[in-house]
Design a protein around this nucleic acid. Sequence first.
DNA 1: ATGGCAACCATTGTATACGCATCGTGGCTC
DNA 2: GAGCCACGATGCGTATACAATGGTTGCCAT
Lengths: 249, 249
Amino acid sequence: MNQRQSLADGEAAGKAPPRRLGKNGDGAERHETIYRSISDAIIEHRLKPGARLREDALAEVFGISRTGIRKILQRLAMEQLVTLTPRRGASVTRPTAEEAKDVFDARQMVECGLMPDVARRITPEDVRELRDMANREREALKAGEQSRAIKLSAAFHERLARLSGNATLATFVGQLCSRSSLILAVYGNPGHLGCESHDHDDLIGYLEAHNGERAAAFMSRHLKAIEASLSIVEEEEEVPDLQRIFTSG
Amino acid sequence: MNQRQSLADGEAAGKAPPRRLGKNGDGAERHETIYRSISDAIIEHRLKPGARLREDALAEVFGISRTGIRKILQRLAMEQLVTLTPRRGASVTRPTAEEAKDVFDARQMVECGLMPDVARRITPEDVRELRDMANREREALKAGEQSRAIKLSAAFHERLARLSGNATLATFVGQLCSRSSLILAVYGNPGHLGCESHDHDDLIGYLEAHNGERAAAFMSRHLKAIEASLSIVEEEEEVPDLQRIFTSG
DNA sequence: ATGGCAACCATTGTATACGCATCGTGGCTC
DNA sequence: GAGCCACGATGCGTATACAATGGTTGCCAT
């Protein structure tokens, strides 16, 4: 149960004990930090799907009361990162196979559809930043830090979408990427991560050349490759095994 | 300030006074009802963009405490229907011109992209239901009930998206439609509503014939027509009414 | 020994109370 | 007479306390 400690080590680790400044201090800033801590922990698979998130524990770890935690938990629930069951509390969402398909279909449609806009609007400055992100991702991958690589990959895709200029679709892509991280945690094969490291570099190349069509096609293949790498075996649900087994027998 | 009364007349109007059952009764069901009441009021333009939503007033109207209202308000904020300013409280979102463009671009991409799937999966039963919705919308429009027509139109588009089988994209379309209703409230010309009544019927025809390509093209024109009907003049800010009035006199 | 029932405990849901920030108003001063 | 400062009120943010529910465990009866 050392998940509680691992939760706080985003950057709020040293803040929890001196909760004297909890009165106002930052105020709304604080919630954002805590939200990001939990969100990152989920995306980086430090909190695995199915893990229960008790309000009291979180409140104690982050030094705020349950009220604030509930607010954050609801926000995470709306982004489908945690599941709120009526009287059972919050737990990290365990995506179903159907949800996984929906998420990747949605990414296919939106991310590919955004590539022409991105290719048209991208600047040399953007290219530099994207390359930097891709480099950091590759390094993390090489160093064996899967957690950080996953988070960086999601951040890369979201940043890419944001370059399209459409803020609404960009945040939507961000949510899809977060959920994809969850899907990787459940259906991904260990050792074979989602994004191949050189894929992102190739994509940047097409975008730098303002070739939206090829970028879209490449993104499509890229996403298909990720989806294909999953082993979506419809794992048995909660209970119905018994019924199916014994009704067929 | 009779907005408060108009808020409750969704179907919770008679419930507010006998708040004796507020203890448990429905429980979580209640929140959903209240959420829908407020959401409908916004979508139907009974609550206009910029209208302030005081927590105390809402709590009193619906017979629950501010805690529950805050939860609902946050949910509405995440769907971009209300704006939460740090110390000023909640108000109905007033979409900017840029947001309007983003929303319609997103709808263009997603709704058109979904049409092939819808055309492939649609059943005679679905067609019947869609025609029924279109009829009700046309009747509302003919009866001059703009409010109901707007809500029905949004519901039609969301239902359509849900027929694609992709729940994630369907709820996203639903949110886009809600926001579109807000956009119509700000930038729409009175008397010239968004969706032409026969448009939806034509669209159903293409879908019934399983002609996804034409359905997508028609949806594209349909959305373009709605967007074109808007008068997106970068409207002046909050206060200048007084200034403009008295400087012109 | 096993199955059912009951009581307890853990945990969430809700309400209320308190603190603080901001905005408006009124009075005072220049 | 006008501008500025101060005080009061309104309304949000947070915490804490209480109530209700569901799960678990232990005991009793068959």
